[in-house]
Design a protein around this nucleic acid. Structure first.
Length: 587
RNA sequence: GCUCCUGUAGCUCAAUUGGCAGAGCACCCGCCUUGUAAGCGGAAGGUUGUCGGUUCAAUUCCGACCAGGAGCUCCA
């Protein structure tokens, strides 16, 4: 299989082979510059390639530059890359001689019947299955990106190696486009924008993975939460509040203490009993369900809560708002009869659309995860629930893929991954059927024949967590939130002090009309006020000076620099209210 | 948690080989009353993440801890 010929437009090259060859060139360059380095493995990846080395010290950025230069030299020589099958013994001898213990380890793990091949390029030979480009010259453009530690074979107890990451493309133009995309991702980083715009902070003082929501971020969060509550009210959910801690016994009964303990904080002792920070909301919702006898007439019971949970995450995994230790799930639990699963899931699917379309998440991939090994629940229940999930997806006309065996141990689930403006995917919504907790807490309802029957429980989150969702939104919108969601919708900018009373009058009216408005009465030139408003990405600037004060008008400027014309301020108020209303009701 | 890197004023960053810590922006005070992306001047701001060690002397060297970053691992 050899499709390495470059097309005239440079696009039809086998990228994986190209990058795999680039990884070999990387290893060759490292061996030339640092002969004592031992090679690990060096595969192509989605976005590039890496190679692992054992070396007496970490590679510095300067090392990477030198290595990259050496790689360019190797590419320039267009050394042929030659496949060479050889016997197991010959291969052993070869890597024994070159002193490559990791290669020997791989060699010995290759099944006896498999053919052994190495690839030669110049003085460098690597144990490899291939395929590769015919020559190093066909690697068009290469760039080393970073280095970091990695365990041999990804096992923590194995030796730690130095991994060098890079990427390669058939043409410089494609590489440049990729690097531009990386830069764009950096520019959108929610941690950077969050700090610049005063959305949130995490500080040493209160510990890792705990988020402080600053006023500007909190305003956006409130809008999201209000929409969320309104939509859930409309869909027949009942909002509840539950505590942040509970007796350890509750978590023992739910099974979390057995199955989820490594993600839970240590218990605290209060007057001789042990209490535990909640990692989940479900046990509380079950207690609420259980609190009064339920009839089939009461079902389905849908309990909703923006519930803040605390989970121990290893320090190295924490990341801005996307991975934290205290976060708020947009949680709900639906208790229903088995025969109602499909219709309840169908309603959740509708609600997913209502919640996520307004934010511009129109593209998604949907996965149905089926029964895993070691799961609880009867075959009949699994078949019933999995069938109900499929039925709901089909009724809703939602295309999906089956993820075999990827369900949770307590039931099948639907996961939805949404695509942001850069095409990155984020797992947001999840809908999970649970046969386990109703059993553990022995919850029942009385059916029409007077029998006590076990309800089915559905866990579902649409946004996932409010913190994470907000972080994704910041990156999605690059900090420029749409008008209906922006922390400040209008800023009023008087040109000189004498216009302040007029500005104040407008601001007060806007506030009364429910528009989020701020004013900038600082003793600054209008250019400075505009600059600051634009950096804060405030959608509309209403500028007013002598002319406007005279005519009861304002001059509108949008945050993209576009002029919005001069018009009577009351008209502008009607227009902006309409624009906000439209934005809120989208989807 | 592990490997490596980083931590200097609210923010973004400087500081030759170890020798009294500096700039821009922001904040505060003045002047200017401003017309669509930064007006001018001044003052103030620090136990260099924390604790310990080496040294006559530590932002600089060493250790531990805390926090951040790139990965690994994890994500029932």
């Amino acid at each position: 299989m050899n499709h390495t010929k470059r097309e005239p437009n440079g696009s039809a090259v086998d990228l994986m082979a190209l990058r795999h060859s680039a990884a070999h060139v990387l290893a060759q360059a490292v061996k030339r510059l640092f002969p004592s380095a031992q090679v690990g493995i060096g595969p192509a990846t989605e976005e590039g390639f890496y190679y692992d080395f054992r070396f007496e010290r970490p590679f510095s950025p300067e090392d990477l530059e030198k290595i990259e230069e050496e790689m360019r030299r190797i590419i320039a020589t267009d050394a042929p890359i030659v496949r060479r099958p050889l016997s197991r013994e010959a291969a052993h001898e070869l890597f024994e001689k070159t002193g490559e213990p990791f290669k020997l380890e791989i060699l010995h793990s290759i099944p006896a019947e498999a053919e052994i091949t190495v690839y030669d390029q110049g003085e460098f030979t690597d144990l490899c299955r291939g395929p590769h480009l015919p020559g190093t010259g066909q690697i068009g453009a290469v760039k080393l990106l970073s280095s970091s530690g990695a365990y041999w074979k990804g096992v923590e107890t194995n030796p730690s190696l130095q991994r060098i990451y890079g990427t390669a493309f058939p043409t410089q133009a494609e590489l440049d486009a990729y690097l531009a995309r990386l830069e764009e991702i950096r520019q959108r980083d929610h941690r950077k924008i969050g700090k610049e715009q005063g959305f949130f902070r995490t500080l040493d003082e209160n510990g890792a993975g705990m988020v402080l929501w600053l006023p500007r971020g909190a305003r956006i969060r409130r809008v999201i939460e209000e929409i969320w509550k309104t939509r859930h009210d409309r869909h027949g959910y009942q909002y509840v509040y539950t505590p942040h801690i509970a007796r350890l016994d509750l978590w023992k009964q739910s099974g979390h203490w057995d199955f989820y303990r490594e993600s839970m904080f240590s218990p605290m002792e209060i007057e001789g009993s042990e209490f535990e920070l909640k990692p989940m909301n479900c046990p509380f919702h079950i207690l609420i369900f259980k609190e009064a006898v339920k009839s089939y007439r009461d079902l389905p019971v849908r309990l909703a809560e923006l519930g803040t949970v605390y989970r121990y995450e290893r320090s190295g995994t924490l990341h801005g708002l996307l991975r934290v230790r205290g976060f708020t799930q947009d949680d709900a639990h639906i208790f229903c009869r088995p025969e109602d699963i499909a219709s309840e899931i169908g309603k959740v699917l509708t609600l997913v659309d209502e919640m996520l379309l307004p934010f511009g998440f129109t593209n998604r991939s949907v996965y149905l995860s089926t029964r895993p090994e070691g799961s609880v629940g009867s075959d009949e229940n699994w078949a019933l629930a999995t069938g109900a999930l499929e039925e709901a997806l089909k009724n809703a006309g939602i295309p999906y893929e089956i993820d075999p065996g990827e369900g949770v141990f307590y039931g099948p689930k639907i996961d939805m991954k949404f695509h942001d403006v850069l095409g990155r995917t984020w797992q947001l919504s999840t809908i999970q059927v649970d046969f386990n907790l109703p059993e553990k807490f022995d919850i029942t309802y009385r059916d029409s024949s007077g029998n006590d029957v076990r309800p089915i429980m559905i866990h579902r989150a649409l946004l996932g967590s409010v913190e994470r969702f907000f972080g994704i939104l910041v990156e999605h919108f690059k900090g420029a939130f749409p008008l209906w969601l922006a922390p400040e919708q209008v800023t009023i900018l008087p040109i000189a002090d004498r216009h302040i009373p007029y500005a104040r009058k407008i601001a007060e009216t806007l506030e009364q009309e429910g528009v989020r408005v701020v004013t900038d009465f600082r003793n600054e030139k209008i250019g400075a006020k505009i600059r600051d408003a634009q950096l804060m990405k405030i959608p509309q600037m209403w500028v007013l000076g002598d002319r406007e004060a005279q005519d009861e008008t304002i001059s509108i400027r949008h945050r993209d620099g576009q002029a919005g014309g001069t018009l009577p301020w009351r008209e502008a108020l009607v227009a902006i209210k309409e624009e906000i209303r439209t934005g809120l009701s989208l989807g």
